[in-house]
Write a protein that binds this DNA or RNA. Structure first.
Lengths: 520, 520
DNA sequence: TAAGACACGTGAAAC
DNA sequence: TGTTTCACGTGTCTT
């Protein structure tokens, strides 16, 4: 084939940018992240993970109980780590392509992480990063820094002379002034850099942009071509300066091939004219991709997507980014739940998490065994006590007894329950009682409005059943209460008895409140 | 420069493998993994991570309560998915480089994953995977499928003609006969494939290996070079057949540069002769890396690391690989300890792990409380039985609730409360309110007997705050209620307001009931 | 077919 | 100083 000739030809243009891909995508990573973020992290896309229990709660409450120090340390560590990590990441991200960029973030306390998954319209980022991605830059450079055979045009589109990536500008790591640019950015689209080359060559242009738009600049030391790119503020970025060299500029419209699954996949199959082309691809949200191909090959058709291979990678990149983000989120969440993780790197984090899980498991196991033992013991003793010593202390234990009174079956007593939540009798809550040893698990399933828990609590109170643990979960319009109470050994109810009692007293309560309400 | 000449020169050899890196690493992913394996995984190099723990415990208990369907689904999926995923991954991994391989695993239930980190002597794997990694294969292919300029030798070492990767052999996904090879394999080291080429070209040689050694075969369609590699059964794999072409074989010794932090880092800086070299790198345990470089460049000095730039990237690559491996190990280990993880991808795995940890935490907490209670109770009862056990079974135990009412105030009665928690009015419960969005988290910390939850519920009911979630935990004589309520957007309380309201109404309740009680 | 998941190699950066 | 970690873009494969 004519590889040789082509090759030499290319060689002459060795300094030319073969392919420049500019991606305008918000970094989405805030410089400083706070605990808040951690929380938001937990609740992000898959809330499913954290079943009924709001993770936050468990965090503060249970873990606090369990290992406060760890938590505290974690918290501090978390903030720091996050910050460090994210800033780090941010920076690296910007730099990645080959040139540089700085980014700003809003410090509003909400994490930007979820931006990616955000429906776009709601979120706008002040951060504009112009990411010039030369595919295979690293590789190309590594392999053949100077010249490459043109063998395939499509290939060509990917190859980029390594030389390009050398010039770099000092980057702004933290744009300290976040300014509430979020909303503004969309308006600012017109503020485009005049020309790419200009942009690229002006190390400080960023300042001119103010906090609003931050552009990574690329110093592309290509033959004669300097691609101007900028201001993707809006959805549609407009290429201001066209590279001097021959090329067709193709601006692909809004995203066409969205994946559909992820909230944002503004993937787009921009046309890739093989020869010289500028494809401007902008994600439906903020990410804009600008591809400039100065190929040596015969001009590709201008139609949509030659489908050679370009478009794929694009949305692919986004998808991958998303995936990474999600994964990282999980890591942070994990960091949050595992005590003593502090700074650790991912591997260590995982290791710690595993160790922690094992620890918990073993502890739990031993605890359960212990419980079993104790219970067996208790039962034995209670049996004994029953038979013989059975106690009487009748009324016993409640100090607070005083209020206990209301218990009266006739719910009339406790007028206070104002709500009058018409807990209609119609939907009678179902009450299930399960007695195990000296504990009973009571489950009440009822409609949300019935305030069954309150009534139940009152009933339990009157019955002098000590509440060991309770849990309430709502689902749709139903609510499930689970209460674990301690039953005085002396009084052994059967499950059915207890259930009947509860139901009655519960009903009494309800009717009582209703009456009260009506009465009032 | 002499690029042209070089280029053409290379071109002639376009079909030649520029760089072949063969990594002897066991796939480490068993086709079918069992729980057992998980444990073994955990105990691998960092035993520290996994204390005494019986890893698999709670699966059925708590989760069943919470989300049985999900669990069920997951569980069922587990077997299948795991297999699929792992086999799939395995395959893909093998294939990755460019050529092919198949792998087998022992099905004995132990995973091979930990081989990497294993001290070798203890563990031997029957599984041998020959992984030919040509760096940048994908990239190279994309760019210049056929020929590349030799520009830099160092680059060269990484580049590999894409052509190579096409031929592929059917792979054995599941070696069905695991045979207890583990112990045997160490003995079998001698069983090496005679030559790489042979091994590579014989698609069925695997059968010959029997169940014991399974080799992924690579069909490297390189010019004349076929690299033969096999049988790493033992610690040190011995390169049997050397590629026909010129090359220096360098076998680097055991790992040199351990990171020190993680228990296992068999990182190693193998010497990388740039030109033609076979670097045999074997991790301290089982991982052996075999690198064959057929460069076009002038022979680099054979000394250690020319330090031009080759060693950096190389060891870097190695290090990164190692890191990834470690991370993956952790993932697998995690997969092992977390129940119901099934097929999940990494993100989901992490999510599940987090959920599981939360679950364990809460369970453990409640279990501990229970234990405490039980113990206290036991003590109390023993005390009681001593002191007062006398009494006959007074009213108690009667089914007929009716007596429940006996409740009559006058704390006098409460002698029973073993703890005698004088829930005096004195100890006012502390109420904390935290508003987040349209939800508020209310925490009440009070003495166990004060029935604060009942009161609080009533108060909330009156305030018409919808209860989203509630949780009650007891600890010693204290009880912590956590309630999450939904706040109607229209009525925006501040935290303090809400707190005050609650406190007031709560107090009112108490006094009210108290009054009632007194009144009665 | 298109989307998701993974591993890889690489540049940058932190301890 | 260098080892190690990280994120990224990409290719491959699976579903």
């Amino acid at each position: 084939m004519s590889i040789h000739p082509l090759y030499s030809q290319i060689r002459q243009n060795s300094e030319v940018v073969h392919n420049i891909k500019v991606v305008f995508d918000e970094p989405t990573w805030g410089a400083n992240r706070s605990q808040v973020m951690a929380q938001s992290l937990l609740m992000d896309s898959d809330a499913a993970f954290f079943p009924p229990s709001p993770s936050i709660v468990s965090l503060n409450t249970s873990s606090a109980l369990r290992s406060s120090p760890g938590v505290a340390r974690r918290a501090s560590g978390l903030g720091r780590d996050h910050e460090a990590q994210y800033t780090g990441r941010n920076v690296s991200t910007e730099k990645r392509g080959s040139s540089m960029a700085s980014t700003s973030f809003d410090n509003r306390g909400h994490s930007l992480d979820h931006l990616w998954s955000q429906p776009v319209d709601t979120q706008f980022n002040d951060v504009v990063s112009v990411n010039t991605v030369e595919k295979d830059q690293g590789h190309s450079r590594t392999c053949y820094p100077v010249a490459r055979p043109p063998s395939q045009d499509e290939k060509l589109s990917f190859s980029l002379p390594s030389l390009v990536s050398k010039a770099r500008v000092p980057e702004v790591k933290n744009s300290s002034n976040p300014l509430s640019v979020d909303r503004l950015s969309s308006e600012q689209k017109p503020t485009v850099l005049p020309s790419l080359s200009q942009a690229l060559n002006a190390p400080d242009f960023r300042q001119s942009m103010g906090t609003k738009v931050l552009v990574q600049e690329d110093k592309v030391r290509v033959g004669g071509i300097s691609g101007g790119v900028t201001k993707p503020g809006g959805e549609k970025a407009v290429p201001l300066s066209k590279p001097p060299q021959q090329h067709q500029t193709t601006i692909s419209g809004p995203p066409v091939s969205g994946s559909g699954r992820s909230s944002f996949d503004q993937s787009e199959l921009d046309c890739q004219e093989s020869e010289a082309e500028i494809s401007f691809k902008e994600s439906n949200s903020t990410a804009v991709e600008f591809t400039l191909n100065v190929g040596t090959k015969p001009p590709r058709k201008r139609g949509r997507k030659p489908a050679n291979d370009r478009e794929e990678p694009l949305s692919h990149v986004q998808a991958e980014r998303q995936r990474r983000e999600k994964l990282n989120q999980r890591f942070y969440a994990l960091r949050a739940v595992v005590p003593n993780v502090s700074k650790m790197d991912k591997a260590s984090l995982l290791g710690d998490a595993i160790a922690y899980i094992n620890e918990l498991q073993s502890k739990l196991q031993s605890a359960e065994e212990q419980i079993k033992d104790l219970k067996g013991q208790a039962i034995a003793s209670s049996d004994r006590s029953q038979d013989s010593l059975s106690i009487g202390r009748g009324s016993s234990n409640n100090i607070p007894v005083k209020d206990g009174l209301s218990l009266r079956p006739q719910g009339s007593a406790n007028s206070t329950s104002a709500s009058g939540q018409v807990a209609v009798g119609g939907t009678k809550p179902t009450i299930a009682v399960h007695i195990l040893g000296e504990e009973a698990m009571i489950r009440i399933n009822c409609l949300k409005d019935s305030y069954a828990l309150a009534h139940m609590m009152m009933a339990l109170q009157e019955l002098r059943l000590e509440i060991r643990h309770s849990n309430t979960s709502t689902m749709m319009d139903k609510v499930l209460h689970t209460v674990i109470v301690k039953i005085e050994p002396k009084e052994h109810y059967t499950q059915e008895q207890l259930r009947a009692i509860l139901e009655r007293s519960f009903q009494a309560y309800r009717s009582g409140t209703k009456e009260d309400a009506q009465a009032l």
